[in-house]
């Protein structure tokens, strides 16, 4: 089965991930800009990072037959550094023009501070100005519900097209808010701290899957890109057909990401001869 990994932090992973993902049917990965585990001090560090994910990483993925796309943003944790955020924002349009760059992300909230909210607004404004997709991170664990509500409040006060916005890391307590507001919702599968493959399938069975994306994120922390494949196996073992799985794990990413013309992978339909 052909799979798209919509949220994956390749720079934190080894080539072995690419090799195994390729062997398991992954045809494309999308790499949002994220927190490196420490707060970067210089805008130039971000610029080099954006160059890495927009220029170098596609070559690494291509060695295994995988297409690599990216997003650029200052993540919410580093948005506390206002000067750095503003400087990076000024330079982001250059990267939005890169052939594999799909939009602005992951922006969003971590502790929902005033600086984070201002940075989120600035990122969304930039994206709308440049007609870009937006990927929004919602907080972890105990901050999730409050942070997700705040994201929705911020967006409701802006002139945005919900079709172009993906709010990520939803779980049982937040998914309805996101879908009811008309946005795309992403479920991130983590071994411990986010949604699990089984819970994700419960959600897939409970809600309309039209605007749902599933990803494993997979970064430098406890994470595993193959939670996505675990989710597919769980989905299939509950009796769902291959085409239904293709719709969720391949075609939905194509439908959302395909709003950016740089994404040229089309939805597929399995037919019998």
């Amino acid at each position: 089965m052909q799979i798209i990994q919509p949220h994956y932090h390749a720079i934190a992973r080894t080539a072995q991930d690419y090799e195994r993902m390729s062997m398991s049917g992954v045809v494309a990965v999308c790499e949002p800009a994220f927190w490196a585990g420490f707060d970067r001090r210089h805008p130039e560090t971000f610029i080099d990072y954006f160059a890495q994910i927009s220029e170098f990483e596609p070559t690494r993925a291509a060695e295994f037959g995988i297409r690599h796309f990216c997003w650029v943003a200052v993540n919410p944790k580093e948005a506390e550094n206002v000067e750095l955020t503003n400087e990076v924002l000024k330079q982001m349009p250059e990267f939005l023009d890169k052939p594999n760059c799909l939009g602005v992300g992951e922006t969003g909230l971590h502790k929902s501070t005033a600086n984070e909210i201002a940075a989120l607004e600035a990122h969304v404004e930039l994206a709308m100005k440049h007609d870009q997709l937006v990927l929004i991170h919602t907080p972890h664990l105990s901050d999730k519900a409050h942070g997700t509500k705040t994201v929705l409040e911020v967006l409701s006060g802006m002139n945005v097209n919900p079709d172009k916005i993906w709010i990520d890391h939803v779980e049982e307590e937040t998914i309805e808010w996101v879908l009811d507001a008309g946005y795309w919702a992403g479920m991130t599968l983590y071994p411990v701290t986010k949604c699990s493959p089984r819970r994700a399938v419960d959600i897939l069975e409970k809600y309309s899957t039209e605007r749902l994306l599933v990803n494993s994120s997979a970064d430098w922390g406890p994470s595993d890109p193959f939670t996505l494949q675990e989710c597919i196996v769980e989905y299939r073992r509950r009796g769902h057909q291959v085409q239904e799985a293709v719709e969720i794990f391949h075609n939905n990413p194509c439908r959302f990401l395909g709003q950016n013309p740089k994404w040229d992978i089309k939805p597929i339909r399995i037919t019998e001869e």
Binding site: T193, R199, D202, E205, K206
Partner: peptide, 20 residues
């Protein structure tokens, strides 16, 4: 704590799955 939280969520999800 976080691993136990995860495991309890799995149990909660199983019970919800059964009810559904």
């Amino acid at each position: 704590f976080l691993e136990a939280r995860r495991d309890l969520l799995e149990v909660a999800a199983l019970l919800d799955r059964y009810d559904e």
